[in-house]
Design a protein around this nucleic acid. Structure first.
Length: 268
DNA sequence: CCCGGAACCTGAAGGC
DNA sequence: TGCCTTCAGGTTCCGG
């Protein structure tokens, strides 16, 4: 799914196009997409509201609406937000009609994505860890987060309460750039290694963002364009290929149920 | 609290 | 062709 760079790309694409637009109606084709309130209440409450701001926290998009409401969208693995002249297909779960005639489609093949309509956004995003691209995310902060964590690094990087925005792709890429083994016990990093990890996380997210995200399959920008970062991935889904740094063969293991790619020579 | 595994879904790809 | 298994970018819940 969209991880931080993909969600932020969507936010940047969408923001200038939907700011100030009023939602004049919504059609819900899969009510299970609505996390809260109930689908009928959702329809009722959102109709007539104007989009005042589009923000992001971790992998969540936050549409601030008039009247103090927030529409919060999580795309999960296969979610898309598409704008304009896009035909509804069998995976379209909801359509928002905007006053200017544009349609915003929520498309989600596997039905894991969710829409929330809440007054207080913190109800949904309040328990997330720090934003890795904000200035608050420093080696000191990361060292503090890692202290007393006895589990492996990789699953911890995927824990959104630990750090917001990393998913399977960028977690593996960050560990590769940092030269750290995904199974390395989190509380054993030296200060120098913590510094490398901090820099690596920020670097891979910025590079992904620069490329408009990574499209392996489902991810699309609001105009259906693909991302370009898949061409620059160093280890993710490159099993059997050469490590770009040392030439050793990239390996795949399963950690906490997730496919995990790394260079056995560079990552210790 | 911390951690790993199962569950939630649909579809594509590969083996037989 | 058809059936079966495996895998997929996420999150939450449950049990140890």
């Amino acid at each position: 799914m969209p991880e931080l760079p993909e969600v932020e790309t969507i936010r940047r694409d969408l923001e200038p196009l939907v700011l100030g637009a009023t939602i004049v109606g919504v059609e819900i084709y899969w009510p299970g997409s609505i996390a809260r309130p109930s689908a009928p209440e959702f329809e009722d409450l959102i109709t007539g509201r104007t989009i005042l701001h589009l923000g992001r926290r971790g992998k969540y998009l936050i549409f601030a609406l008039s009247g103090g409401w927030n529409l919060i969208v999580h795309l999960a693995m296969t979610g898309r937000l598409l704008l304009n002249q896009v035909e509804r297909d069998k995976h379209t779960r909801a359509v928002f009609h905007l006053e200017d005639g544009h349609n915003l489609l929520f498309v989600n093949m596997r039905k894991f994505g969710r829409l929330y309509l809440v007054k207080d956004a913190q109800e949904v995003v309040g328990r997330l860890g720090p934003e890795p691209l904000e200035a608050e995310f420093t080696p000191q902060r990361l060292a503090h987060l890692l202290a007393n964590r006895r589990g492996a690094l990789k699953p911890l990087l995927l824990n959104q309460r630990f750090l917001a925005g990393l998913g399977n792709i960028y977690a593996d890429e960050a560990l590769f750039v940092a030269g750290l083994h995904p199974q390395r016990r989190a509380d054993t990093l030296s200060p120098e290694e913590v510094g490398r990890l901090c820099g690596a996380i920020r670097l891979v997210l910025k590079e992904g963002l620069k490329d408009g995200g990574t499209t392996l399959e489902a991810y699309r920008r609001p105009n259906e364009e693909k991302g370009r970062h898949q061409e620059r991935l160093q280890v993710f889904q490159r099993t059997g290929g050469p490590c770009p740094r040392c030439g050793a063969t990239i390996e795949r293991i399963v950690l906490a149920g997730r496919g995990t790619y790394f260079c056995p020579r560079c990552q210790r």
